[in-house]
Simulated assay, not measured.
Amino acid sequence: MKTKEIIAVYPGSFDPPTKGHLDIISRAAKIFPKVVVAITHNYNKKHMFTLEERLSMMEESVSEIKNVEVSSFSGLLVDYLDKIDSFCIVRGLRALSDFEYEFQMALMNRKLKKDVETIFLMPEQEYTFLSSSMVREIASLGGNFKNFVPNNVYKKIKDKRKLNV
């Protein structure tokens, strides 16, 4: 019996991609032979960037990690997993406050598709407080967010802020 390559899917809206996201991606890339960063439109959030912009920023941010690809999807994550022949979801846990939501999502995904497994990875301690929404808020209030995002993302946010002034 031949073992198939495990494709780990790291889903999210990544609006914008942060260094915390990249930390989780690089950790997953050390564990799994292939990692797909699956960017989706979250209808519960007001996005700063379009899906195309987020795809472009993420592709540039992970371009050095050879076993990572960036994709997008809409609809249920479990349907996307079927589409790419995966059963493995990677999620980051920053703090205890993330656990309840992530636990519920993992159980719901497993209920929707019995063989789905969710793997939780913890980021480097310096990223445990970091979220895309915090970066958006700091940027919108004119604060310094340069250390929280990759350089390419920093430039895109600065450009976006200039357009909205």
Rank of each mutant, 00 (worst) to 15 (best):
R54P: 04
R54S: 04
R54W: 02
L55W: 08
L55S: 05
S56T: 13
M57R: 02
M57W: 04
E59T: 12
S61M: 00
V62S: 03
V62T: 03
S63K: 14
E64T: 13
E64C: 13
I65Q: 01
I65A: 00
I65E: 03
K66H: 12
K66V: 10
K66F: 02
K66E: 15
N67Y: 10
N67G: 11
N67E: 10
V68H: 12
V68A: 13
V68G: 12
V68N: 14
V68K: 09
E69P: 11
E69G: 13
V70S: 07
V70P: 01
S71A: 14
S71P: 07
S71D: 12
S72Q: 09
S72E: 13
S72I: 04
S72F: 08
F73Y: 15
S74T: 12
S74D: 08
S74A: 09
G75L: 06
G75R: 03
L77V: 07
L77K: 07
V78E: 05
Y80P: 10
Y80C: 10
L81S: 05
L81Y: 07
D82C: 05
D82W: 04
K83C: 11
S86I: 06
S86K: 06
S86F: 05
S86D: 04
F87E: 15
F87L: 15
F87R: 14
C88N: 10
C88Y: 09
C88T: 15
V90T: 03
V90W: 01
V90P: 02
R91M: 04
R91N: 01
R91G: 02
G92H: 04
L93Y: 02
A95W: 00
L96Y: 08
S97Q: 10
S97F: 01
S97V: 12
D98G: 02
D98T: 00
F99V: 06
F99K: 01
F99C: 05
F99D: 00
E100H: 05
E100R: 02
E100Y: 02
E100N: 05
Y101H: 09
E102M: 00
E102D: 03
Q104D: 13
Q104F: 12
Q104P: 11
M105S: 12
L107F: 10
L107S: 14
M108L: 14
N109H: 03
N109D: 06
R110D: 05
R110S: 05
R110A: 08
K111V: 02
K111Q: 10
L112I: 00
K113D: 03
K113L: 06
V116N: 05
V116M: 03
E117R: 13
E117A: 15
E117C: 15
T118K: 01
I119W: 04
F120G: 10
L121Q: 07
L121S: 13
L121I: 11
M122H: 14
P123R: 12
P123F: 09
E124T: 14
E124N: 14
Q125V: 15
E126T: 11
E126S: 14
E126M: 14
E126D: 13
E126Q: 15
Y127H: 09
T128R: 13
T128V: 11
F129S: 09
S131K: 01
S131R: 09
S131G: 01
S131H: 05
S132H: 03
S132A: 09
S132E: 06
S132Y: 06
S132T: 06
S132W: 04
S133T: 15
S133F: 11
S133M: 14
M134D: 10
V135Q: 03
E137C: 08
E137K: 12
I138P: 06
I138C: 04
I138D: 04
